[in-house]
Nucleic acid binder design. Structure first.
Length: 600
RNA sequence: GUUUCGGUAGCUCAGCUGGAUAGAGCAACGGAUUUCUAAUCCGUGGGUCGCAGGUUCAAGUCCUGCCCGAAACGCCA
């Protein structure tokens, strides 16, 4: 947002130092004045000093003098090389919240910078239910897509489901042996959980067999579990089943289809609860053979080379990534081969400008290699591929390990948080008057709390998720922001009941307190925050901003009353300021795919 | 061994292209409610920004080296 007095200052300085080149995009983005200083906004003169090649102090003196006599300015104080400006209430609001459409609308990028963006995320395996780690992935992916869309990009959300492979065969084998024909319907168990139960059963049996092997054969004592897998009876069965699946065995395929169906139904529920949607869902069972042709073509073109034993490799020594196998000696493909294939498939289906993968940071090397290979293959769009690597989620007790039963299940987590939101609400409003929409409300608050709690951290950091701490709805949380909205909704409701209607009669001059001005200044930062977050592909910037804005509102709320203001004119002005604040908060939360309850 | 990412208050984390006396939440302690929702607000204490050099008028931020932690470096996905 542009403040008139700063635009004028810009002109004044440019003219005064006309010998120097001001640069055509000299933009003064003011900072919020620190609380211990006196003022609304701060101008940092070090930045001018670089542009005009004058001493910061001199510029600060000139700027303070100029601003002091500006009609919009109440007071301008030079402190070192900063000028702290106290603006007249009227002018702050005139340059900010009075142009609300501009603030909300101008965050949309110009046509020339809009792009078609593919965001791939989630990518679950169909052998077990989703856990907290998936929830972080889903949340980051969904919110990133939403953020990109918010600033004007054309976004396509993609899920690539790993619906085949040895892991599914493990669940299938265990089901054949221990399942006794149980179904989600007969057991009342959610499909993905039911299948997951058998995955656990498989693992238990496998470890039993590995233990027996080690006991009987002393020479196997030092072998790892992975090395012994294929030597166990049950491990071999799973491997055999995978081969049968690949050769199209009818019986195996139909069991596979049945169990995957259960899992998909379960995932659909989990996704729906999180508000997660995709434009395209690719299935690995349909794409896992892709890439082979491309690799063979690459051999003919000389991009890749064949080793003596027939395996195909790519040489990436020039980019310090060594050599990488793309086809085994027996002609079968590896993970990388598939990813080359699916990347191309996604490109052909959607012709995007950018492709983004939301995948854990343990795969940084894999994607670096993938991108290098695609560049080597000569695709010019390969320069616009981006791996959004996010860190793992740890618990206070350490890492999540499925074997040790320390995973936090997604559905359980949702239930728990929603239940807590419900009891917190009931505790506050009293059991006597349970609102009709209590369940809907609790859902919005509980799920919102989880999402916000995952988004407020920089994606690349490994985070500690403390279930005990996350159940609180105080402090830097999603509900804190939602609560500010709910308070404003309540004010709006009550003013409406009192017959107060805003027309064109807002008198911004009246809202001249520091708290009111601060709200306006912060609201005006929204555009830059959105753009910056999108640019960095980092929703935590937006979270941080929403917390600050909500905090500024709560300070205002404590100091100034809307309903009990001295006169109607002031009431309407404050109400308008509140509603604009709410609109930004709600828009921000919506951008993070977090809903706002009408009341809390 | 090589590469990547981290190391900031008791705990969990912010800190944008270097700029004011390094911030927030939680926890601890002390206050605020005849007032629009106390899921709130105000205050106090709490720091050698891993260590050591360097660049700069100015370094948590940039450069170099070292220490600690995590991950990757597969013909697993």
């Amino acid at each position: 947002m542009n403040y008139k007095c700063l635009d004028d200052l810009k002109l004044f300085l440019s003219e005064k130092y006309s010998g120097a080149t001001p640069g055509n995009n000299l933009e003064i983005t003011p900072d919020i004045c620190p609380p211990e200083m006196n003022g609304d906004i701060t101008v940092n003169c070090f930045r001018f000093a670089k542009i005009f090649r004058k001493s910061p102090d001199e510029i600060a003196v000139e700027s303070a003098e100029f601003l002091s006599s500006h009609p919009d300015v109440e007071k301008a104080e030079k402190v070192k090389a900063f000028v702290n400006v106290t603006l007249r209430g009227e002018s702050v609001h005139r340059d900010t919240v009075a142009k609300m459409n501009e603030i909300m609308g101008s965050s949309i990028l110009p046509e020339s910078r809009k792009q078609k963006v593919l965001v791939e995320f989630s990518a679950p395996n169909t052998n077990k239910p989703q856990h907290l780690g998936h929830v972080r992935n889903n949340t980051i992916g969904m919110s990133l897509a939403s953020l990109m869309r918010r600033v004007g990009h054309d976004v396509v959300r993609i899920n690539l489901v790993n619906d085949r492979g040895i892991h599914i065969c493990k669940s299938m084998i265990a089901y054949q042996r221990f399942g006794e024909g149980v179904t989600p319907e007969s057991s009342g168990r959610k499909g993905d959980h039911l299948v997951g139960d058998f995955y656990v059963k498989f693992d238990r049996e496998l470890r039993k067999q590995i233990g027996e092997l080690r006991e009987k054969n002393q020479e196997l004592k030092d072998k790892t579990d992975e090395e012994l897998f294929i030597q166990t009876e049950i491990g071999r069965s799973a491997q055999d089943m995978l081969q049968k699946w690949e050769s199209g065995d009818q019986e195996v395929k139909s069991l596979w289809q049945k169990m995957n169906g259960w899992v998909f139904a379960g995932f659909a529920q989990t996704y729906a609860r999180m508000g997660i949607e995709f434009e395209h869902t690719y299935l690995e069972s349909q794409t896992y053979l892709l890439g082979k042709d491309l690799v063979e073509q690459g051999v003919r073109k000389g991009t890749f080379f064949k080793r003596d034993d027939g395996a195909v490799l790519v040489d990436l020594e020039d980019v310090k990534l060594g050599k990488k196998v793309l086809l085994r000696a027996d002609g079968t493909s590896v993970y990388m081969t598939q990813d080359i294939g699916t990347t191309l498939l996604k490109y052909r289906d959607n012709t995007p400008d950018i492709q983004i993968w939301v995948v854990g940071d343990e795969q940084i090397h894999h994607f670096k290699t993938l991108f290098a290979i695609l560049r080597k293959m000569g695709y010019k769009w390969a320069g616009n591929l981006h791996h959004l690597a996010y860190g793992m989620v740890n618990l206070p007790t350490g890492k999540m390990k499925s074997r040790e039963g320390t995973v936090v299940d997604a559905d359980d987590l949702f239930d728990e948080m929603v239940a807590l939101a419900k009891s917190a609400t009931l505790e506050r409003i009293g059991e006597g008057k349970v609102p009709e929409d209590i369940d809907k409300r609790s859902e919005i608050i509980g799920i919102g709390a989880i999402k916000f709690n995952l988004l407020k951290f920089n994606p690349k950091t490994t985070i500690m998720f403390d279930p005990q701490a996350s159940i609180r709805f105080e402090g830097d949380t999603g509900p804190y922001v939602q609560y500010a909205c709910a308070r404003i909704n309540s004010i709006e409701r009550k003013t409406r009941e009192a017959g107060l209607v805003i027309k064109d009669d807002i008198n911004w001059k009246l809202a001249c307190s520091h708290e009111e001005k601060e709200l306006s200044v912060r609201i005006s930062q929204y555009r830059d925050v959105l753009r910056q977050s999108a640019e960095k592909m980092d929703c935590s910037t937006l979270c941080e901003y929403l917390l600050e804005l909500a905090k500024a509102f709560n300070r205002f709320y404590r100091e100034h009353s809307v309903l009990n203001a001295d006169n109607d004119e002031l009431k309407k002005t404050r109400l308008a300021l509140c509603c604009r604040t709410r609109d930004v908060l709600a828009d921000g939360l919506k951008t993070l795919t977090i809903d706002v309850p009408e009341a809390m």
